[in-house]
Amino acid sequence: MTALLETGKLCKRFGGVVALDELDMAVARNEILGLIGPNGSGKTTFFNVVTGIYSTDAGRVRFDGADITNAAARAVYRAGIFRTFQRSRLSLPLSIFDNIMIGDHKRLDQRLWFNLMRRRAFKREFEQACGRARALIEVFEPALAERMFEPVAGLPMIDRRRIEICRALISEPKLLLLDEPSAGMTHDETAELMNDIFLVRERNKNLTIVIVEHEMGVIERITDRCVVLNFGRKIAEGRYRDVAADAQVQEAYLGVA
C-alpha cells in the first residue's frame, strides 16, 4: 500500500541554518507516527513546510496521490490535512462553537447571498453545524457542550486543547498533524488528553496522525512507529522501544561524546 504522506529529499534553509536536510519521510495510512528529536531538529519546520506556511527550497511532498509541494495553506487544508499548533491558537474572544466551526470552513456555504439573504436556509445549516459540533465535543467533555456559546477565554488549558482537537476533527481530515499537544499542561492533564486522542482513534480508524511530542511517555503509549530527527536529518526510524535504544538517538538527545 502506498504511503498517505510522502516527502522526497525535502529541504528548507533559513539563511545558513539547514532546518530540513534532504528529508525522506513516509507516513502510512492509518498509523500513528511519532516525530521526535531535540529542540531545533526540524519537527515543527516539517509541519510548516507540509502545510504550506513555509515554501520548500527543494524536494517534493506528495499527499494521497497528489503533489502538494508548495501548495497554499488553504489548498493543503482542502486536500485533507489539518494541523494544530504548539502554542494554543484559539481565538479567545470567540465562543467554543465559533472556534470549532472555523475548522469546518470547507463544508460551510461561504456565498455572500446565502449568508446575508437566505436566512432560513442559513438557519438550517447553522442547526446542522450545531449538531455536529455538539456531538463531537460530547465525546471529549460533555460539560463543554452545554457552554458552546461562551467565549473560550475563561477555559483551562486542557479544555482549550480539547477544543483545538475538535476544531481539527470537525472537517474529518485524512491526516492530523499534532504539534506538541501536551505543551503547557500538567502530567494528569496530559494523560487525560492522550485518552481523548485514543478515543478519537477508536471512533475513526481511518485517521492518520503525526504527533510531535517531548513527553516520551506519550510517544511510547500511542505511537505505532517513530521517526527521529536531528539537524533536519532522519537519524532513526522504527518502533519506539527500538529507536530509544539506538546509539545515535541517545547521542543526539544526551550529547554523548
Partner: peptide
Amino acid sequence: SWIGLNLDALRLDETAAACFG
C-alpha cells in the same frame, strides 16, 4: 453568518486562518 466568523478568524490569527482553508 459564516462570513462574520471568517472575518473574525482572520483578524485574530491570519496564519491559523489560512491553515483552516
